[in-house]
Design a protein around this nucleic acid. Sequence first.
RNA 1: GGGCGCUUAGCUCAGUUGGUUAGAGCGCAUGCCUUACAAGCAUGAUGUCACAGGUUCGAGUCCUGUAGUGCCCACCA
Length: 1084
Amino acid sequence: MAKGGGTYDPGAIETEIYAFWERGDGHRSYFAARPDSGRVPFTIVIPPPNVTGALHLGHALNNTLQDILIRRKRMQGFDACWLPGTDHAGIATQAVVEKRLLETEKKTRNEIGREALVERIWKWKDEYEARILGQLRKMGCSCDWERTRFTLDETCARAVYETFFRLFKDGLIYRGTRLVNWDAALQTAVADDELYHESVKGHLWHIRYPVADSNGATEQRSDGGAAPSHLHPSTPFLTIATTRPETMLGDTALAVHPDDPRYQHLIGKHVTLPLVHRRIPVIADPILVDPKFGTGVVKVTPAHDPNDYECGLRNNLPQLNILTKDGRIRDDDEGKRLFGPYAGMERYAARKQIVKDLEAASLLEKAEPHEHEVGHSDRSKTPIEPMLSEQWFVKMAPLAEPALEAVRDGRVNFFPPRYAKTYLDWLGEKRDWCVSRQLWWGHRIPVWSYYGLAHQFASPAAAIAHGEVREKLRLRLQTLVASGAVAICYEDEPIANAARLDDREAFATKKHRICIADPGNSELVKQLADAGYEQDPDVLDTWFSSALWPFSTFGWPEKNSEQAEPPPASNPEFAIRYSQFAIHRYYPTSVLSTARDIISLWVARMVIMGLYNTGDKPAGPGRVPFSHVCIHPVIQDGNGRRMSKSTGNGVDPLDLIELYGTDAMRFTLASMAGETQDLRIPVSYHCPHCDALTQHSSVVPHNKFPRDIPKVKCKGCGKEFATVWADQPLKDQLGVGLDTSERFELGRNFCNKLWQAATGFVLANLTEESNGPRTLSRQQLALEDRWILSRLQACIAEVDRRIEAYQFSDAAGAIYAFFWGEFCDWYVELVKPRLAKKGDAAPDQRSDESRLVARQVLAFVLDQTLRLLHPIAPFVTEALWHRLNAVAAWRGIDELQEGGPALIVAEWPRVQSQWIDADAELRMSRLQDVVRALRDVKTRVNGIRAAARETVIRNLPQAVLRADARLTAEFEASRAALLTLGNCDAIDIGERLAKPPEAASKIFAGYELYVSLSGLANLDLERQRLGKEIDETRGHIERIGSKLGNESYVRGAPPAVVERDRAKLEELRSKLTSLEENLAGISN
RNA sequence: GGGCGCUUAGCUCAGUUGGUUAGAGCGCAUGCCUUACAAGCAUGAUGUCACAGGUUCGAGUCCUGUAGUGCCCACCA
């Protein structure tokens, strides 16, 4: 082969190989699950990526790991089912589409309306879903594409509505008030994760609240001590501090700590709310109040502060909302009455005015400048207001307990196990789950409300007609409730059974809500609308549908889902649905792979819903959705920040694939995916103009919005270019800088090494002669054959053990070390002489036999390596598999096996213990010692010669290897290898050989190597080296000696350890003697 | 503030129940186009295992504390 004959080019084969897999066996894709195969299923559902944008490196990692698991199980003969899909991601997606709408058309969602907005979001979803699924394909993911789901598609929606209905019927869903983050600009609630905090310069205002029960007299403390200084003797007051003075309008109490001696006498008394003169009580609350902070008095505004809200609940305080939806002080009747002059004012204007008025009334003690973090809406960039609103909740207490139990009793296991704590701690709080969101993008809550007799009818006839419509509905509802298609809830009474509907009067007058199991029943929906019902405008939390993902995707609650028997072949349509919705087969899934940050948001809720839904009966004890949860590390950038799109430091895996190849990316990610540490990957931009690298995201501020960094300035040429996250026009205009990181060279180099070794050596040596392989016995194998086969068994065992434990980096490392460090570096080099053909110089003695055996071992080891590596690096291994099949269809040692048409479905390697060979490994390690020693001597000789401007030598002329009789025979058998690999022209091997003059030496346990340096190099460096080694050896002897001299060590340590140290000491002493002799021998 | 990790070579990280002289990749140094591979080969150098105590015959490993760092959760009137 020509020198420098090209490197592995992944781009050339990846597309073709992926198409090959998708074509499959001509009947079905190799990726498709085979529910009719009779094999044991192995299922993974993908954590559905958000359709907000493209995937980044974090997704690449997670999906690589899942593909590793699924591909290995497929090869092990399981019916592997990896279900792909995407998540509608509620607010996140709606927000990006609204943002774009505003940017491109200057319109708000209210201007275009609910339907039009939702339509646009669907378009966005189609675009990004396609991009995401395309990325997964490029990454080589072997998903069963026929099963691709979307959390908002019809199949998933059915499960959502069914679940909501069951919860509703079981009384596990209720309406409650909750503080939400209110965006007054967009007039919507925003989720916690859509907030960002920004430091705002404000003031801490200290306000005096006069004590109201004092009759103007000095309050006496119960212990008779002096009043605190801030209690004015004539008009006592309490001072509070606040950053939002306008919220005082909503105060319904002041709180002090119950043990605070300063305020004991005031607990239970009242103060007057300044300016608006409302009496509010002074209460004691040990949770809200820290007596050491500030004045130890806190104003309580339950309707506008989360802590105050909790305090209000504890103390039965009224919740007084002071704000309108657009951020003004309320000016409805109650607002006018309570807030007087401030009613109707914009919130910040009100703040200003209130401060001014307090000052005027001498109730403002002081105003300190104060910088604090204020929550802002990611979408409008305005400060959010905590505001009370009515929401839907799921009761967690009864649901959480079984889910806790499932982890405690080991039905669900976390890997690494420490993450079980995260899960248990969070679920243990059993906090009710707010499932409603004030959005348009999502599953609309399937509840219709009737608000009693609110209708104004145009005429008496219309009223009568309406009554008839309602009566008809009532009768129908009775049937529907009885059949379990509808559930009804009267005001405060959670569940009404069908009998309640007998009460026509109540039905006509009372507020009630109707939850229907199938909101797709348009005829019923219309009937409800006609009868004066309104559907709840909100949608469900996106995690609600995510929680159902392990079974909603398989068609639950499809009827056939509980049937275990296959459908009759005579009904093809049913057979397809059966196959598609094979929940009986693929649920519970086998393993879930995800990052740790959504253990509570997602993992816990899947367990809850799985247990709740998948029992034999509705709401019966169900099955856990997976038995293993694999928590993989988080990818960080070079500065240790979590990699994500929103932080602006995300990396598109396609960039890395373009630069390094898919297998290289996957192998590198797998190599880095350890159990304890997150992966830090410094990334740079590859300038499209000048190829220079610019550090990635080194200056992106964490909290600033927008976080997008679509433009980057090149450090090399100074030109600007776009990042992959930029919009297309910008990309076209500036060119796109690809993300890159030299970390991925590890994988690229390994893939190249595999490719070169396989095509350039193994396959090249298999092409000639066509004798097929035959079964071989141990006697026919050379030392290196036995050794590499033994090492191969160790590698297989290690890879198995590591993948089973989700220790991916160790699995990748084991293959790397075996193939590169043992097979390529040693076996290939050892076997080269045996492959020399007749007529070549210096053919091996046993040429024919030996050559054929070597070829067979080469083919077999490559075969096994390709199988082992395939889950991690699927493309290059599959490509080589086909090439190997072409030249050696049958492979094996003592048992032959045909390669098979596709590696993706080839059998996973098994450890064959008959090839584990400790003797060969020991002999080989001695051979390696001698070879390394010879190379070392040569390198040092050449170092001296180069320094002296002499030509370097290619080979050492002569070496002497002194060993006992047994080892002499052993080395004699490997003489050729010693000479070739040790770059040595001649070697004497024997028991009592004379040490050559002026010799460099290496001392091993039981054998010594000498190389005369006469005429090659001066001896100074060898003397130095020996001196150093002697020092080291003496130090070592001293350490072990003193250890063994310590009686308590000899008594306390295990005998085997002591024995080993004794032997070691003996060995070191003899080594020291030799070293000293050698040094003396070359000293003047 | 609570919880969970991390701190080992210049960089990124391994290091199993405590037990030989603490390892890998990259980088570095030297020499090599040795007929698979320069994305390569060979050889070599590089460590106060964050710090301070403790347990032990023996600590990178176990315990306590300190400092730094990252993530998750809760967030201070």
